[in-house]
Simulated assay, not measured.
Amino acid sequence: MSEIGGRGGSGGRPALITLTAVGKAFDVGDGTAPALLPSSLSIADGEFVVFLGPSGCGKTTLLRMMSGLLEPTSGTIAVAGNPLWDKGRCRKELRSRLGLVFQDSALLPWLTVEENVRLPLDLRGRLPRAERLSGARAMLALVGAADIGARMPHEISGGMRQRVAIARALSYDPDVLLMDEPFAALDAISREALNTELQTLWLSTGKTIVLVTHSMAEAAFLADRIVLFSPGPGRIDSAIDVPFPRPRTRDLTYSPEFQRMVRDLHERLAGLMRLP
C-alpha cells in the first residue's frame, strides 16, 4: 500500500482530504477487476495537487471516489476528518464541499450559459432567485466569461465552455475543486492560457484543487505537489514537490529548471511503465 503525506509548503495547514487504503474494483463477469490498488494520500487545505500517470492507472477512478460519484471498494475517504461515505451513501453535507469539473464541459444544451452556472443553486433552492442570479454572474466574471451569460453552449468555444463548467462547479462555493482533464481537448494555445487563468483563480480563492492530467508540463506548471500513479491496476507510487515560486508565468516553461523537471517526470513515469 502506498502512503503519501501532505506537503510542508502548504503552510503547515491540516489535511482537508485524507485517503486511507482506498481501492476500487469493478464487477466483471463472474469476478472483479481492480482499477485502483489500495493507496493512501493526504491533501492539505489550499493545496494544488496534480494526479499524473498513464491511461488506465486509476487517476479518474480515484477522483470520482473523492467526488462522491463512486464508492470505494476498500478504505476510507475523509473530508475535514469526517467520512465521506456512510453505509453505502455519500454524505450530502460533505458532498456539497466538493466541486467537480469533467473532461467534457457537460453543459445542458437547452440552457443558457448563465442558467447552466445557476443550475446547482436552483436545485438546492436555498437562496432567493436574485441571489442565485447574482452568484452565477459573479462566478462567470471570476472565470473571465462575464459577457456570455445569455448565449447558448453551442455558441461559444470549447475553451469558454470549460470556463463555464468551472464557474458552475464554483457556484455553490465548495472547498475543493476536483478537475478531470478539463483542458485535454483544447488546442495548445488555449490550454496554456487556461492553465495561467486556473492558477490565478486558485491564488485568488484559496480553494483546494486536485487536477488529473496526462501532461507533464501542465503538472509542473500548476502543482504544489505531483502524485505519480503506476500502470493499471494502478496505485499511488510517489509524490514530488514542485519548487517553483508563484505566480508562475509562461517564461518559466522555457527555463532549464522547468525543462529538467519535465524530463525527470518523463523518466520517472517511463521507469514505472518499464519503457526505454
Score class of each variant (00 low, 15 high):
196 T>P: 01
181 E>D: 09
168 R>S: 03
194 L>W: 08
160 M>C: 13
197 E>P: 09
185 A>R: 08
186 L>K: 01
174 P>A: 06
160 M>S: 14
175 D>I: 01
187 D>M: 11
180 D>M: 06
205 T>V: 06
196 T>L: 14
164 V>N: 05
199 Q>S: 10
162 Q>P: 06
205 T>H: 07
212 V>T: 08
163 R>D: 08
166 I>D: 09
182 P>A: 09
184 A>W: 07
179 M>S: 08
207 K>L: 15
173 D>T: 15
193 A>D: 03
179 M>K: 07
154 H>G: 09
176 V>Q: 00
186 L>P: 04
151 R>F: 11
179 M>Y: 02
193 A>H: 12
178 L>S: 08
189 I>A: 12
165 A>F: 01
180 D>W: 04
161 R>E: 02
210 V>A: 00
192 E>D: 13
167 A>W: 11
150 A>H: 15
189 I>E: 13
191 R>I: 04
173 D>C: 09
201 L>C: 12
189 I>M: 13
206 G>S: 11
183 F>L: 12
155 E>K: 03
184 A>H: 10
169 A>F: 03
204 S>G: 13
150 A>S: 15
178 L>H: 09
160 M>W: 12
152 M>C: 05
187 D>G: 11
203 L>A: 15
198 L>W: 02
192 E>W: 04
159 G>M: 04
177 L>K: 01
156 I>T: 13
